[in-house]
């Protein structure tokens, strides 16, 4: 009996050790990537780097201003497109979970989430770039917005579904019309969840290269026009990292560092928001 117990205890201990070890192990890839990119990239970053466009091969200096501006502009426009559509359809899905429309559109959202980003790029190419006859930043934004949608929709839906139905009844019993119940009660109560969904989707698309290849294309000059090709951080990294020049490699490392910081900060801010603005039900 004693011996049996001992074996059992050892087994439990081994199991515990294993899960602790694995939990630790999964942090290593992230830490290694972080350290490496910081090591390679942080030296490149300075004010000049952020405010100048890439220099031609052989010339010293040069920066990533075109890509930085491009990424921010395109992601901002994509967010403006995706937020209203995403939140409103998320509201529909959470409010009418048992309708046929909700079933099929929920299915589409799930499938959309799994569509390879390059395919979305090609589709937007056929929709916008080809009819317009030119690559453009706006087509890049549309492609990114399509990638954001599933995340925004699902996070809105899931957040709102967790709200107790009694909340809606409380508002309705005061004679508040349905649209005001949604706008004034349901959405504010789920605000932190919805916002964190948006932030996470932004963090997700800011590093996307594939949907931009056929849409925003890339541009070695600074451009603010949504109708013209535009550079983006991931695309710049892709082009410069595959070039044969050391200067350009360094530029790509610097850009990787900036991109990584964006994603890191977005994730941390999201965590803070959900903790701080979470509404106690």
């Amino acid at each position: 009996m004693e011996a049996r117990l001992k074996i059992r205890n050892t087994k439990s201990l081994l199991f515990k050790g294993l899960i602790v070890f694995l939990a630790f192990l999964i942090t290593i890839p992230l830490i290694v990537v972080l350290l490496y990119i910081i090591k390679q990239g942080v030296m490149q970053v300075n004010w000049h780097f952020l405010t100048h466009v890439p220099a031609p091969v052989g010339e010293p200096g040069g920066g990533i201003a075109n890509a930085l501006v491009g990424s921010i502009l395109m992601v901002a426009v994509a967010t403006i497109i995706a937020i209203p559509v995403g939140i409103l359809s998320g509201i529909y899905l959470s409010e009418n979970p048992s309708t046929k429309l909700a079933y099929y559109s929920g299915l589409c959202v799930d499938i959309l989430q799994g569509v390879p980003s390059i395919v979305i790029g090609i589709v937007v190419y056929l929709w916008i770039v080809k009819p317009a006859g030119t690559f453009s930043a706006i087509s890049g934004s549309v492609a990114l917005a399509i990638m954001m949608l599933p995340i925004v929709i699902r996070s809105t839906e899931q957040t709102l579904r967790l709200l107790p139905p009694s909340l809606k009844e409380a508002a309705l019993s005061l004679g508040v019309p349905y649209h005001r119940v949604i706008i004034k009660v349901i959405v504010p109560c789920g605000f932190s969840g919805i916002l964190s969904g948006i932030m996470l989707s932004v963090a997700r698309i800011i590093g996307e290269t594939a949907p931009l290849l056929f849409t925003a294309l890339g541009n070695s000059f600074l451009s603010y026009s949504m109708k013209k090709p535009m550079e983006s951080l991931p695309h710049l990294i892709y082009t410069y990292a595959t070039s044969p020049y050391d200067d350009w490699h360094n530029l790509a490392w610097g850009a990787s560092f900036i991109l990584l910081m964006f994603v890191l900060i977005l994730n941390i801010v999201t965590k803070l928001i959900t903790r701080k603005w979470n509404i106690q039900l």
Binding site: S166, E169, A170, A171, L174, G175, P188, F191
Partner: peptide
Amino acid sequence: VRYKIGMVFQRPNPFPN
């Protein structure tokens, strides 16, 4: 009708926001 006839529910449901 709901202006004129108020309601209190089984579980207290103040608006958390």
